[in-house]
């Protein structure tokens, strides 16, 4: 059976992971390459690296990091942040990334999804959507949640699928950082509306939240950052728990 995927997400600035990382007995928490390797050993199914650097120099550092990750990590990994055109995708795939995550650039220029999937295949094209629940509408946001748009989550996700997105990464701004669970109702609606995989992001605080995202939210994968980085939830324990709860996971 196809396994549900657990995906740690690492924010990277100038070649270093940001947000405190607090692994027990792990001295290289600031190094995204070593941290990614550590997660892969623990049983992560995929990794996501987000470049949150703005500068040109930082960008080059990020591409170097992607190359090092590819040489070190034996599971698929997605890279995102700062992807604006086809050329950016080409550079990252050449450096060894398996998939790219595009967010604001796709909202500004939806044709980018068509271009990326036509050139490199749908399987590399993850469309990330930051959305916030406002008066029963899941409003999509630009620039990491800073600029509201007129688009709603379900319509935009459907359009992204039709344009060739291979997966939808739905980041709930409403749930992010609150640690009270993923937006299961919206996730289930997405799963019912789409026929590409949906990755849940935003809200993980306990093991039960992952179970609910898979069982109630029908998500194909669940992404989280701080609960893994701070060691609040360990991936081996999480996967054993999920298996006992009847979720198919890779152990």
């Amino acid at each position: 059976m196809l396994a549900k995927r657990i995906i740690p997400c690492l924010d990277v600035k100038d070649g270093q992971t940001v947000k405190g990382v607090n692994f027990v007995n792990f001295r290289h928490a600031g190094d995204p390459v070593e941290l990614g390797h550590q997660y892969s050993i623990q049983g992560a199914d995929e990794l996501v690296f987000l470049d949150i650097t703005a500068s040109h120099e930082g960008r080059k550092t990020f591409v170097d990091m992607v190359r090092k990750v590819a040489d070190r990590v034996s599971i698929p990994f997605t890279v995102g942040g700062g992807i604006n055109e086809l050329k950016d995708v080409d550079v990252l795939l050449n450096a060894g990334a398996d998939k790219v995550s595009i967010n604001s650039a796709a909202l500004r220029n939806p044709g980018l999804i068509d271009e990326v999937s036509a050139h490199f295949g749908s399987q590399v094209c993850v469309v990330a959507i930051d959305a916030n629940l406002e008066d029963n509408l899941w409003r999509c946001y630009l620039n990491g949640g800073r600029i509201p748009t007129d688009k709603d989550l379900f319509g935009w996700a459907r359009e992204a699928q039709e344009r060739g997105a291979g997966e939808i990464l739905f980041i709930s701004m409403t749930h992010d950082g609150v640690k009270k669970g993923y937006p299961n109702e919206a996730l289930a609606t997405l799963a019912d509306n789409l026929n590409i995989p949906v990755i849940a992001s935003g809200g993980a605080g306990k093991r039960e939240h992952f179970r609910d995202a898979f069982q109630l939210g029908k998500a194909d994968a669940a992404l989280a950052a701080s609960v893994f980085h701070f060691g609040e939830i360990s991936i081996p324990e999480l996967k054993t728990y999920l298996k006992n709860e009847g979720v198919t996971v890779r152990l």
């Binding site: 196809l2 396994a3 199914d45 997966e167 799963a191 026929n195 194909d220």
Partner: peptide
């Protein structure tokens, strides 16, 4: 050929 809505194509991810 998907038989049900949940059957997604491509087959993507970890399988045994």
């Amino acid at each position: 050929l998907p038989q049900r809505h949940e059957d997604k194509v491509p087959h993507m991810g970890w399988n045994t």
